[in-house]
Amino acid sequence: MKVTLKVFRFNGERDYLPHYDTIEMEIDEKKDVVLDVLNRIKWEHDGSFTYRRSCRHGICGSCAIKVNGRSTLACKERMEDMVALFGTELVLEPVSKKRAIKDMVVDKSDFWERYERVKPWLEAEIDEHPTMENIIPPEEAEKLEESDYCIQCGCCYYACPVIEVNENYLGPAAFEKAFRFTADVRDHAKRERLEIVDRLGEGVWDCVKCFECAEACPKHIDPIGKITKLHNEIFKEGVARSNVATRHAVGFKHSIKKHGILDEGHLVAYSEGFGVLKHLPEAFEMWKKGKIVMPWEMPKSKKLDEIKKLVEIASTVRF
C-alpha cells in the first residue's frame, strides 16, 4: 500500500519556522508500525530526520509522536490502524509543536518538572539492611490497578487541552503517578500528595473531563479514572478545603436531595459564595432569553421522597 506522509521538519538551531516534507512511501500495512515508517524516512529519504526511539517494545516511552493530531506511541501503533482511521494521507508531528527542538524531538522538561511535583516515589521508612523483601499482599497490590504500567511517554500529557492553556496545571501523567503512590499501602505521604493535587489552578479540580488522556494512553491506564479517584480521596481523607470547586461537587448532592433535578442557580450561588455577584450580568442576559428558572418555579422530580431516601441511605462521604 502506498501512503503519503506529511512530515513536520524543524531545526531549532537554524529555522525560524517549521515546514513539512511530503514523502510517498510503500508500506506493508499488515506488518509495519509507525516507528518502521520513521526509520525508513531517516534511512531512505533524509538522514538528518530526527526522532527519539529506543526499546521498540512499548516500554521505554521514547517514541511518542502525533499522527494526524492523535498521540501515538510509534513502536506500538500499527500502520494498518492508522490508515483505517485517517486514510492514506498521514501527518507526522511531534507531540508538541511549540516545544519542538528538532523534527519529532521535543523539549520534555515541562513534563518532567510537573511530574516531579507530585513526589513520584515511595515515601517510606526504609530499613537499610533488610533481612527480607518488603512485600505487599495481592489485595493491596490490586488497589494500584494498572497505574504502575505508566511509561512516562507523555501521550496523555500532550493530548490534554488544559496543558495547552494553563502552565501551572500538573496534567494527567502526574496525577496518574500521584494516585499510584497514594494507593500504595507502604507509602507515608498520602496526605501530602493529596494536598498538592488539591490546589486550585494546578491540581485535579482544573481537569476539564474531556477524556483525551484516556484515549491517548498507549498502556490503557485511564488517567482520568485516576483523577476521579484522587477527587474521591481528597474528600475521604478530609483534605478538601471549602472552595468553589469542592462546594460545586458537594452542591450536586444538596440540590438532588432537595429537588431531584439540579437547581442550577442555587448550585452556582452555593459554589461561588459572594463570588456569585460576578455572574449577575450573564444571569441577566440569560433571564432575558428565558433561561433562568425562578426559585419558586423550580421543577422537582416525581417521587422525590424516593430520591431523598436514597441520598440518606446511599451517601458514603461527608463534607
Binding site: H231, V250, G251, F252, K253, I256, A314, T316
Partner: peptide, 10 residues
C-alpha cells in the same frame, strides 16, 4: 461527573 467526584456510590 461532579457528584461522581464527591460520592461515587451515591
Amino acid at each position: 461527573s461532579h457528584l461522581q467526584d464527591f460520592d461515587d456510590f451515591l
